[in-house]
Simulated assay, not measured.
Amino acid sequence: MTPDEYLAAVDEPRQADVRALDALIRESAPDLPRFLYGSMLGYGPFHYRYASGREGDAALIALAAQKRHFSVYVACASQGRYLAESYADRLPGASVGKSCVRFTTLAKVDEAVLRELIADAAARGPQEAAGPA
Rank of each mutant, 00 (worst) to 15 (best):
Thr2Met: 11
Asp31Pro: 01
Pro3Thr: 12
Tyr87Thr: 07
Arg14Tyr: 00
Leu63Asp: 02
Ala112Asp: 15
Thr105Ala: 15
His69Arg: 15
Arg68Ser: 14
Gln15Thr: 11
Tyr50Val: 03
Asp17Met: 03
Tyr50Met: 09
His69Lys: 14
Ser28Asn: 04
Leu41Gly: 02
Asp120Thr: 10
Val101Ile: 13
Tyr48Glu: 03
Asp89Lys: 14
Asp4Pro: 05
Ala75Gly: 10
Leu117Gln: 02
Ala133Pro: 15
Asp57Gln: 14
Ile25His: 02
Leu117Thr: 03
Gly131Lys: 10
Pro126Gly: 15
Leu60Met: 05
Asp89Ile: 00
Ala64Glu: 05
Phe103Ala: 09
Ser78Trp: 06
Val101Ser: 04
Gly125Ala: 09
Ser71Tyr: 00
Tyr82Asp: 15
Cys76Ala: 08
Tyr87Trp: 04
Gly42Lys: 01
Val101Trp: 00
Gly56Glu: 08
Arg14Val: 07
Glu116Gln: 12
Phe46Trp: 06
Asp17Ile: 06
Gly42Phe: 03
Arg102Tyr: 00
Glu27Ala: 11
Pro45Asp: 01
Phe46Lys: 06
Glu128Ser: 12
His69Glu: 13
Ala20Cys: 07
Glu55Gly: 05
Thr105Val: 02
Leu41Pro: 03
Asp89Ser: 15
Tyr50Ala: 08
Ala51Val: 14
Arg54Asn: 08
Ser86Gly: 13
Gly44Asn: 04
Ala123Phe: 02
Ala77Trp: 02
Gly53Phe: 00
Ala9Glu: 09
Gly97Val: 00
Ser78Gln: 14
Gly56Ser: 11
Leu106Thr: 06
Pro126Ala: 15
Arg19Phe: 08
Ser78Ala: 09
Asp89Pro: 10
Gly56Met: 08
Pro33Trp: 00
Val74Ser: 02
Ala112Gln: 14
Val96Asn: 07
Leu41Asn: 01
Ala58Tyr: 08
Ala20Pro: 06
Lys67Gln: 14
Thr105Glu: 13
Pro45Cys: 00
Ala51Arg: 15
Gly125Phe: 07
